[in-house]
């Protein structure tokens, strides 16, 4: 791990020395036991702040969309140049980058992804690998521009098992579980803000005109918020689980993000984040798309 950290620092120093990027987004030592925190490195000297270990949990891709948001221009005004930035990515984070490129939120040419093979993020208290990392399919960031060598987890043999097991339960049990989880939700929106895909300037949950969902902490409102956000991630969520890690109350979003991945794969043969060229799932219609949910709604799939 220390070896990877040295290689990372060296790579970042080179990027900054050669002015290939304006800054690099990476991780530095956190102030709380077992945590790291994001940092923006602008000079080669600052590169020594960077760390790499199993506390590097944040999906740093979340900082990218605002960097490339184009401002409204006056007539005749030239658009300001877009920055070129470096970013340290784990396997899951690299999928997020590809997902954002696919959705045209981030130009691929402006990103230098430094890929770190990952052994799983550790829970700060128990020091065990987080349950949400156990289903990881992409521990090695294949699409990275600079690939740092190092050990990685074995990809999960059956990453969609969790969703499959959940679906097999009777519907009353599934509903009860969902309701129990949602009871913990305090509507703090940490999940939304930690998610790189939630880059909408204006979120449906905040809309007042019309007010789609109420602001109360009652189940009907919290469930609608969670379901709404999850469904907005259909075909886009890459399963990075940043939302799971951000949630202060321990709401089990992992089961539901896995379900999103399962549906994308089994119904539409799509794995978000695997490539940057395909059209996002819900942006296109194919007459051969599964419509069993209309024609055969009682079928358990």
């Amino acid at each position: 791990m220390k070896d990877m950290q040295e290689k990372l620092r060296a790579a970042v120093k080179t990027l900054l020395d050669k002015h290939e990027v304006a800054f690099v987004i990476g991780y530095q030592r956190g102030s709380v036991r077992g945590r790291s925190k994001p940092c923006f490195v602008r000079t080669p000297e600052q590169a020594d702040q960077l760390i790499w270990d199993q506390t590097c949990s944040n999906n740093l891709t979340v900082y990218l969309p605002p960097l490339f948001r184009r401002p409204r221009l006056r007539p005749g005004q030239e658009p300001p140049p877009l920055p070129r930035v470096g970013i340290v990515v784990k396997g899951c984070d690299a999928l997020s980058v590809a997902g954002l490129v696919r959705e045209k939120q981030v130009p691929r040419a402006n990103i230098v992804a430094i890929g770190m093979p990952c052994q799983g993020i550790l829970d700060p208290d128990s020091k065990q690998v987080l349950p949400s990392c156990l289903d990881c399919q992409h521990p090695v960031p294949e699409q990275a521009d600079i690939k740092i060598d190092g050990p990685a987890r074995e990809p999960a043999k059956d990453p969609l098992a969790r969703a499959r097991e959940f679906e097999a339960k009777p519907i009353e049990e599934r509903w009860r579980y969902f309701a129990e989880q949602i009871k913990k939700c305090i509507r703090c929106y940490a999940c939304r803000e930690a998610c790189p895909n939630c880059y909408c300037k204006s979120c449906f949950a905040d809309s007042t005109n019309p007010r789609w969902i109420g602001l109360s902490s009652e189940q009907s409102d919290t469930m609608l918020y969670q379901l709404g956000r999850l469904f907005h991630q259909a075909g886009r969520c890459v399963g990075c689980n940043a939302c799971v890690r951000a949630c202060p109350m321990g709401v089990d979003l992992h089961t539901f993000t896995t379900k999103l991945l399962k549906d994308a794969k089994e119904l539409f043969d799509d794995t978000p984040g695997e490539d940057t060229e395909s059209v996002p799932l819900l942006s296109t219609f194919d007459p051969h798309d599964s419509d069993a949910f209309i024609t055969d709604p009682d079928k358990q799939d």
Binding site: K37, F40, I186, R187, C188, Y189, A190, E193, A194, A246
Partner: peptide, 10 residues
């Protein structure tokens, strides 16, 4: 690095 999530205030 703040995400603007509001968790701190809640």
């Amino acid at each position: 690095i703040c995400l603007g999530c509001g968790l701190c205030t809640y």
